[in-house]
Simulated assay, not measured.
Amino acid sequence: MKIVVIGGTGLIGGKVVGKLRERGHDAVPAAPSTGVNTLTGEGLADALAGAQVVVDVSNSPSFDAAAVLEFFTTSTRNLLTAEAAAGVAHHVALSIVGIEGLPENGYFQAKVAQEHLIKEGPVPYSIVRATQFFEFVKGIADTAADGDTVRIPPVLFQPMAAEDVAEAVAGAAAEPPGKGTVEVAGPDVFRFDELVGKALRAWNDPRTVVADRHARYFGSELRERSLVPDEGRAHLAGLRFDDWLRRSA
């Protein structure tokens, strides 16, 4: 199959392209650097010609709430319109576990809007909701830092490797649509503050992690299970955080 991967040059997209090619598919990365712009529609028709599946793992260049909402809604509308015109049979999108539960998080609410457009759109779809990535832990610590102190809420956290996220997305793309929304998560549940502290120690980062129940996560105060799937609902990935951490350190 010809499978076009929107955002196919990024962290997840590049891995999805590789995994699809390993399965024998004609996986084509599409991004502004390849002449495809989902915000303006530039290059979409040519890129989608002959495609059976489109995978959307693109990301907003801005995290401002209004800009994120504009990116995901405009891009998704343009994609679905172009897919319908090209006869694409399956739209696969990457989303995030728990997005409905954090209304103060502008990024999460933009993903809610994106999912709604996909579900109401003209193309059969699969949505893969993933927990946070191991690769984001350093950025989360930087965002939560106040000098040498990193304030993290002591809630449950079940991250997974980008490699496993890509495997889940590629698997969904290689199968027929019809499964609706699936969730994937890491194999182990941690306390958020303890995991960040472990990572910083492994990286010889001198900052101190403090458990702060009211510390905000990208604008939202978290409940105990805000960032983890319901028990028994998610497919669990294989790579454990400690193994990934040893490699990264």
Rank of each mutant, 00 (worst) to 15 (best):
S75F: 05
A199L: 10
T38M: 15
S75E: 05
V184E: 00
L200R: 13
N105Q: 13
V36Y: 12
Q52D: 13
L44C: 10
H214A: 15
A215G: 06
Q114D: 06
P61D: 14
P176F: 02
V57H: 04
S220T: 15
D164A: 07
F192M: 15
V182P: 00
V53D: 01
G8M: 07
P103D: 14
A173H: 03
V54H: 06
G171P: 01
P32I: 10
G13Y: 04
V209H: 03
R77H: 12
V150T: 09
E83Y: 09
Y217M: 12
P159R: 07
L245T: 01
A162C: 09
P229D: 11
G186Y: 00
I140F: 14
E70Q: 15
L39C: 08
R213S: 12
P124Q: 11
E175S: 11
R191S: 10
D148S: 13
D205W: 15
M1Q: 13
E224Y: 04
V28H: 03
P206A: 09
P206Q: 05
G43C: 12
F157L: 12
K119P: 04
G106V: 05
A162N: 09
D242M: 07
G14N: 03
I3D: 02
W203F: 15
T149G: 03
A93M: 12
F72D: 08
V209C: 10
F63S: 13
E100G: 15
R21V: 03
V196M: 12
R201C: 06
A161K: 00
A66K: 13
P154N: 07
E42Q: 15
G147I: 11
I140Q: 12
G121E: 11
D142C: 09
A130I: 02
E83M: 15
S220V: 02
A211D: 09
V17H: 09
D164L: 08
A65W: 02
G35S: 08
H116F: 06
G219V: 10
F63Q: 12
D230A: 14
E22D: 15
A89G: 13
Y107L: 06
V123P: 01
A66E: 13
N105H: 14
D146L: 07
G139P: 02
F190S: 12
N59H: 12
E183N: 05
T38F: 10
V57D: 02
F72A: 03
P177V: 02
A172T: 00
I140C: 02
T81M: 08
K15H: 05
R246P: 01
E104R: 14
A89Y: 05
D164G: 07
A172Q: 07
F136N: 10
V53F: 07
V228Q: 05
A93W: 01
E115V: 00
S62Y: 05
A67N: 08
F63A: 11
I6E: 06
E231L: 14
G197D: 15
F108P: 00
I96F: 14
A215M: 09
P187M: 06
P154M: 01
V228R: 00
V17D: 00
